[in-house]
Design a protein around this nucleic acid. Structure first.
Lengths: 393, 393
DNA sequence: GTATTTTGTTTAGCGTCGGCACAAAGTAAG
DNA sequence: CTTACTTTGTGCCGACGCTAAACAAAATAC
């Protein structure tokens, strides 16, 4: 049954006829698989006649994820607080808490709060839960599941986030249909956001998707290869923050100088534009506002151009190494790109080796809450891989 | 039957019992698969009693590739000439031509010579041929199969090497058991060398293997992910030659300065060591000799240390992005590494972000003629994937 | 109204694999 | 030397999943 549910999940199998073609099996087999998924309550077959212009033959029934089907619990923690959501198949956010602010606290406390919020959502909606996923702003070492640099959270380096999250899931009674605590997964926020963008957003249809994004501080990268996240052999791949993008640049805590991490982030931008870098929470937002509404201010524009050139230099280096066929940008990088798309495209093309790779399409991330949806993707993965086993076991 | 032959090919299935465990099937199934492969003439079952100390139970028969089985034609062209070989399963070189020198000439001429040499080997040995592979010192664009920068060969950029190679295979009557011309494949020399090292050399058992190597001029990189070559979405990944490793370095033809390509190659080394850079053909060999026999010369040592530091800087950047669990070095990089292994390891560990990734093991490439064996791997791949289909079709 | 096209379903049959029993070939212990 | 035990290899049977093929259904084309 393998990848059939994934095809419906990502919208690549709108009908049984397409599913048949995508799976490379007979209509009989595809029909049986669809019936099985329907009996599991995961998908629905819409038998209403669809008005499709210019098509001959018997109209096909539409396959769609069951809007009343099971959900997964998605959680995100970041510097300022946390958010929990319930996410269905297809990346649909069924319910979400408002963004909650917290003071820094130890992992068990913060994850307890976010899991409690998610459990509350489950209770109030009455949905079945089949998994849980968490996105954290830190590299996550595999296979231990520890957070190596949760600096923004004031957590100790090496905090065992996977285990703590699993404990909280169990403690708050987040159980699946079988009554046992659901399986839980933890990933870096940019990594899982890339997964979400690949399946439901700006990365749909890309073979190799590179995502680069900033949060309030620091730069993250992620790579989706043939539909799977590339996290390297110990979860630490795509640490792109310390590519050199300005040989004369400011020193970085890593020991080098001119790193992407310190050269292309909201602080660097606001300083270059001569704006205050006051209360931390709004650095990204105020950068975005500046780029969108005051781009005719010469200081803003020239600051943006300098940062665009440096970002382009970093992206070109990544293009030479990874040869992706699409790039999606998030956070400040997205706003810089949208301020002057052609400039960034030109810099990347100019500094990457092959015109062909240089012309790699660059897009903005297109999903709201892509880290939440991505955390949910982690939790959905076992169901996508083997629905029968994941729901029955 | 999938990966069974690949397990024998790479030495991971020495007996049927191990094959059973590796495939995760029953003994009955594994035995049937082995019998099938034996009937195809690909492997042999050695029933002689093997002396294995300390093992209870019935001794197992050894599975080995059939030394008299079919071969593939492997070809390599480089700046100075070419070489052809016949390679059996297991990466065994059955026969090889001596290295042949040529003057630069057009692709059809050079590839005609190398294929003719290979055809001659086939004729003189009387072996069955089931495929052909070619390694070229140039990026190969996919899916076109064109050589983008065959500078060392004095070929035009964009030369359709795959088509030309296939034409020469057909023209010289290199046919398989069915009588049709064998399938042919072309790859970049460092890429296919990485494949060979992963399967039969220094990369055995690695999950994600990074290979960096120099030839006479220029730097090449390759990445093997979960046993498959990562060539990016258009064949141009791992162009590592233009990583910046020396911000104050010499200008590079790519427009930047201080690129790995010009900072860590034989010319840069010999110049730094105050040695002549005369006749092109021996630049790599004389660098190697210098590093092995005159490392107590202060100028040699200090030149080597400077280049080791720059190489380490480039490798650290790649480690941060790719997070491999092993690195294998070839060409000059190998000799630099062997001159002072601890220094290179220390630089890589120091400049990569995580101590854990920093401690990634670094090794020397260990196969003779790894590009030839790698070219053969390309040709073997269809047989490994589906022996029945590849040999019967 | 009839033919054509495409989709969906039913049935029969084939091949692959797992489970199981049994045989084979060694070591370990008496 | 005999017996017990462990591990490997093989033959048989049944469950399962898939394909092929025929049939049915629902639209358009003429």
């Amino acid at each position: 049954m393998g990848p059939a549910l994934a095809l419906v999940h990502t919208g690549r199998a709108p009908t049984r006829a397409v599913l048949t073609a995508e799976l490379g099996v007979t209509r009989a087999t595809a029909g049986a698989v669809a019936a099985e998924l329907e009996s599991l309550g995961l998908i629905r077959v819409d038998t209403r006649p669809t008005v499709e212009a210019g098509s001959q033959g018997r109209p096909s029934h539409r396959l769609q994820v069951d809007p009343d089907g099971p959900v997964v619990l998605a959680a995100q923690v970041h510097a300022d607080g946390f958010r929990a959501a319930l996410v269905g198949l297809g990346g649909r956010i069924i319910a979400t808490t408002p963004g909650c602010m917290t003071v820094p606290a130890d992992p068990a406390h913060v994850l307890g709060l976010v899991v409690a919020a998610g459990a509350e959502l489950l209770k109030s909606t009455g949905r079945d839960c089949v998994g849980a996923g968490l996105a954290v702003p830190s590299a996550v070492a595999e296979p231990e599941g520890t957070a190596l640099n949760p600096l923004h959270l004031a957590w100790p380096a090496g905090a065992p986030v996977r285990d703590v999250f699993a404990e909280q899931i169990e403690a708050h009674g987040v159980t699946g249909p079988s009554g046992a605590p659901v399986a839980s997964f933890v990933g870096n926020d940019v990594n899982v956001a890339a997964l979400a963008e690949h399946r439901h957003g700006a990365g749909r249809g890309a073979q190799h998707l590179l995502v680069v994004a900033t949060g309030h501080r620091g730069v993250g990268g992620a790579l989706v290869l043939d539909g799977r996240l590339h996290t390297g052999s110990s979860g630490l791949a795509l640490e792109v923050g310390h590519l050199t993008v300005n040989p004369e640049g400011r020193p970085c805590h890593c020991g080098s100088r001119g790193c992407l991490d310190v050269e292309v982030d909201p602080v660097a931008f606001l300083e270059a534009a001569g704006r205050p870098t006051g209360p931390e929470v709004s650095l990204l937002d105020s950068s975005a506002r500046l780029l969108r509404t005051e781009y005719d201010d010469p200081r803003v524009r020239s600051a943006a151009e300098v940062l665009i050139d440096r970002l382009g230099s970093g992206l070109a280096g990544l293009v030479n190494v990874l040869n992706p066929d699409r790039i999606a940008l998030g956070g400040l990088h997205r706003y810089l790109f949208e301020a002057d798309p052609e400039r960034l495209r030109a810099v990347v093309a100019d500094r990457s080796l092959w015109g062909r790779s240089g012309s790699v399409p660059i897009l903005s991330c297109s999903l709201d809450h892509n880290s939440l949806v991505g955390a949910a993707e982690l939790a959905w993965q076992p169901v996508l891989d083997d629905p029968l086993d994941a729901l029955a076991g």
